[in-house]
Amino acid sequence: MQTGTIVKYDGIKGFGFIEPDIGGEDVFLHASILGEELKHVLRGGTRVQFEAAPGNQGTKAVAVRLLSVVSQTSVAQAAADDRKSSSDDELCEVLTPVEFTQNITDVLIGAVPDMTGGQILQVREQLVAFARRHGWVED
């Protein structure tokens, strides 16, 4: 299997592209080869392991496995958020459940790259319920 980084993935349209670590053309990624759990966690910057095969219009992924998220923007944003939260005495921003789950996913994948999509979904569900009970997210 090769490794690479998701360059772009549109969950609504159901496709994206992987930039192989070894270089060359980007590999087409269609949602039809993904398990339901992966469809919800893939985004630009996600590190994956994949198998590719020639397709009608170029190389396409035939299997994908999640490795980790390596988005420098996410890391920088998280660090900035940490600095801001430690220096501010104001109330925190209330997130929507979607924003909250996206943040949780980034943290979980970064902390435990081998966590399966199913495990991520289970943890997110419990954390969102907990956050709702404490008023940390609003619907």
Rank of each mutant, 00 (worst) to 15 (best):
V70E: 14
G23S: 12
L34G: 14
W136Q: 00
L108M: 09
N56H: 11
E138V: 10
K8S: 13
A53H: 07
Q126T: 09
G11Y: 01
V64K: 13
Q122I: 10
S74Y: 04
R83K: 13
M115P: 04
A31D: 11
L95C: 00
T3Y: 03
K84M: 12
K13C: 05
K60F: 00
W136I: 00
P97G: 05
L91H: 13
G135H: 00
P54H: 07
G16P: 05
V62T: 15
R83M: 09
A131T: 00
R133F: 10
G4I: 02
I18M: 08
L67Y: 00
C92R: 12
A131P: 03
L108N: 01
R83P: 02
V48M: 03
G14Y: 05
V27S: 05
S68F: 04
S71D: 15
K13Y: 07
I120G: 08
Q2W: 02
A63E: 11
P54K: 05
L29H: 04
R65D: 14
K13I: 06
H30N: 14
K13F: 04
L34I: 12
G16Y: 03
E99H: 01
L91F: 13
G58Y: 06
I18K: 08
I109Q: 11
V123I: 09
E37Q: 13
Q119P: 07
D81W: 02
Q72R: 14
D10A: 10
G118S: 14
Q77V: 11
A129F: 06
Q126F: 07
T116Y: 04
I120R: 13
G4C: 08
A31L: 11
A129Q: 14
F15Y: 15
S86R: 13
R124S: 05
F15W: 11
G117I: 05
D139P: 13
K39F: 06
S87L: 14
A53Y: 06
L34V: 10
Q49V: 02
H40D: 15
G117T: 03
D139W: 03
G44T: 03
A131I: 00
M1R: 06
I104F: 01
I12A: 15
L42H: 08
Y9K: 04
A131G: 01
L29V: 14
V123D: 04
T73Q: 13
L42F: 04
G117R: 06
I104M: 12
E125K: 15
E125W: 01
V112T: 07
G135S: 01
Q57A: 15
